[in-house]
Amino acid sequence: MNMLRRRNLPTSPHTPLTDKLGSLEQKIRKEIAIMKKCRHGHIVRLLEVIDDKLNERIYMVMEYLGGGEIKWRNDQNEPVLRVDQCRRICRDVILGLEYLHYQGIIHRDIKPANLLWTADRQMVKITDFGVSHFSYAQRLAAAGRGQVALDDPNDPILQDDSDLSKRAGTPPFLAPEVISEYTSTDPSPSIGSTAVPHRQPITKAIDVWALGVTMYCLLFGNIPFRAPDSSEYVLYNVICNHDWEPNEMMGCDNEETGGRYPPVTHDGYVVMHLLDRFLQKDVRKRITLDEAKVNTPSLQLLT
């Protein structure tokens, strides 16, 4: 950083580099604008941005997290985390997502690789905002009655909602509403049918779905929706139209799940119930972060 500051950079009054961006640089600029808004214990901090005009590069100086990304399975696709560790990780991610959504930010790529441990392995932070989206309307709704203070509410980078309609993120973690064209439809639905609507709004609920997929990965060492031939077309069909199934045991400590729908009295009920609420294909039935924090029996996961 000091070497870059000492360079004899051009000082003529020309258009800044960040105002002449191509598609990749536009993505970087949007990521910077979003990260500048984030100040939370479970969000990786952006410390400084250096615009190196001489070499036409933009450097993002990030908070260093010595624990690295979460390792959630071994070479045999077996979980390496205990159930209580998965509980702590999900708690931290829920708190981080709650803050992001209040700020009007939809992460769009929640997955284990984008969750980093602090050096002491006591806390997890969300990183990688490369495909994140800022929704001004969502920010207003979260604040209530229009009481909102933004760094720059007129920034066109943050006002552009067109990206939200584009597919972004990691395929196995995409919510059904993002790939709704793969949803099978009933040609003659009955009155009062609870079938999943073919077109559902793309909202912050996509992060809740991705958290559910992440939770499944941490518990079982594999993703809940899989395509046998690694085809994205098949994978998207599976995500939209198939149910998920748990293993008999979860975590490296091999706690019993009790199956897909264990009885309330079973030790695995709380986890399976929460997974079921996270992975609801119908966004209207999917659990919210507030419900995940305070509703019984989900409350037990966060204690």
Rank of each mutant, 00 (worst) to 15 (best):
M1W: 02
N8A: 15
P10T: 10
D19R: 11
G22W: 08
S23P: 12
K27D: 12
I28S: 11
R29F: 03
M35E: 00
K36Q: 09
C38F: 01
G41S: 10
I43L: 04
V44G: 04
V49I: 07
D51S: 08
R57C: 08
I58T: 10
V61H: 06
M62K: 01
E69M: 06
I70F: 03
D75T: 05
Q76C: 10
Q76H: 14
N77W: 12
E78S: 10
P79G: 05
R82P: 02
Q85C: 08
Q85K: 13
Q85N: 07
Q85M: 12
C86I: 10
L95M: 10
Y102M: 08
G104I: 03
P112D: 02
A113E: 15
L115H: 05
Q122S: 14
V124S: 08
T127R: 08
S135T: 08
S135F: 09
G144Q: 04
G146W: 06
G146N: 06
G146Y: 09
Q147V: 09
A149E: 14
D151W: 09
P156D: 08
I157D: 12
I157W: 13
I157F: 12
L158W: 04
Q159D: 07
S162Q: 13
S162G: 06
K166H: 14
E181A: 14
T183N: 09
R199E: 11
P201K: 00
I202D: 00
I206M: 11
A210N: 05
G212Q: 05
G212F: 06
Y216K: 04
C217N: 13
L218P: 05
L219N: 06
L219A: 08
G221V: 00
G221W: 02
N222G: 07
R226H: 10
R226N: 03
A227V: 00
A227N: 03
Y233N: 12
Y236K: 03
C240V: 01
N241Y: 01
D243T: 03
W244D: 00
W244G: 00
P246A: 10
M249T: 08
D253A: 00
E255Y: 07
E256M: 06
G258F: 06
R260P: 01
Y261V: 01
D276L: 00
L279F: 01
K281Q: 03
D282T: 02
D290S: 14
D290K: 13
K293D: 00
V294F: 14
L301F: 09
